[in-house]
């Protein structure tokens, strides 16, 4: 088959219904990516993920000696793979594997970071952490400022050391609790509408300051708003919490999650630039 014919066939199989008797398993990676981009073809997406699972397993095994089951790492790495497949841009001129590797690694590393040292947190500390979330909110209202550790210890009738430990142990759970709590969605939407103009300006500043506007686009609107209020309006976490209608500890978690996302985006971009340099494209 000539190159011209090959391109024509790829174009046909990369878009529209598959010819009779053809299966997604028979398509090339590029054809699958075309189908995913042009038609949001779920079967093509699944096939891509299936083909790259061995890469996830291989990367997960590199972390096998760090005390976490490899199966768990494969699960976490798979999330990175799905993100990579969904975000991959065919026009970048790089292989999907080049793009997916740092994303998968990033997801696995983030998992270790979230787990930290407190892999097994005693039940009492977990309970104290939950209580502290509530008490911080109550005391912030009463005192009209963020409470100190001594004040938290007095309010929960435990030692200051236990408060410090419970706060630290809470970080292990930040990834699961990140979407819980918070104020009403309608209130948030109104707040976001108020800020749309200002947000545009914030993106420009972010661009100037090289925190990268494209990376900001990966955050959800609430996260963008929180970063804007904290880093450009100069509000404290407690002020941001009051403004958005969520707890200060939740603001803290969302700031970290947003910054982690921005950092991961930058790492991926850096890896891509490095790959392009290796091929002499830059």
């Amino acid at each position: 088959m000539s190159a011209l014919e090959s391109d024509r066939v790829e174009g046909q199989r990369g878009a529209g219904p598959l010819p009779y008797g053809e299966r997604v398993e028979d398509l090339s990676e590029r054809e699958l990516l075309l189908r995913l981009r042009e038609q949001q073809d779920g079967a093509a997406r699944e096939e891509l993920i299936k083909r790259y699972l061995p890469l996830v397993k291989s990367l997960a095994r590199r972390f096998a000696s760090r005390g976490q089951p490899v199966e768990d790492l494969v699960q976490v790495g798979s999330i990175g793979l799905i993100k990579a497949v969904d975000r991959f841009d065919l026009d970048r001129g790089v292989e999907l594997s080049t793009y997916a590797t740092p994303t998968i690694m990033g997801e696995i590393k983030r998992y270790f970071r979230d787990k930290g040292w407190a892999v097994k947190v005693p039940r009492a500390l977990q309970d104290l952490n939950v209580r502290l979330n509530r008490v911080v909110e109550q005391l912030t209202v009463e005192l009209r400022r963020s409470p100190t550790i001594a004040e938290l210890a007095a309010a929960t009738e435990v030692s200051e050391e236990e408060v410090v430990e419970a706060l630290e142990s809470g970080r292990a759970y930040s990834s699961v609790s990140i979407f819980s709590g918070g104020g009403g969605e309608e209130d948030e939407s109104l707040e976001l509408l108020d800020y749309l103009g200002t947000e545009e300006e914030a993106y420009e500043i972010f661009e100037q300051r090289r925190v990268l506007a494209p990376a900001m686009a990966r955050l959800d609107p609430r996260e963008r708003l929180i970063l804007h209020l904290r880093f450009f309006e100069g509000m404290t976490q407690t002020q941001v919490a009051t403004r958005i209608g969520i707890s200060q500890m939740h603001v803290s978690r969302l700031i970290r999650k947003s910054i982690d996302n921005l950092r991961q985006y930058m790492a991926e971009e850096e890896a891509l630039a490095e790959a392009a340099r290796g091929r002499g494209e830059v």
Partner: peptide, 11 residues
């Protein structure tokens, strides 16, 4: 631990 000795607010 050190912050608790110095009444540094949580935020």
């Amino acid at each position: 631990g050190m912050a608790s000795r110095n009444d540094l607010p949580l935020d």
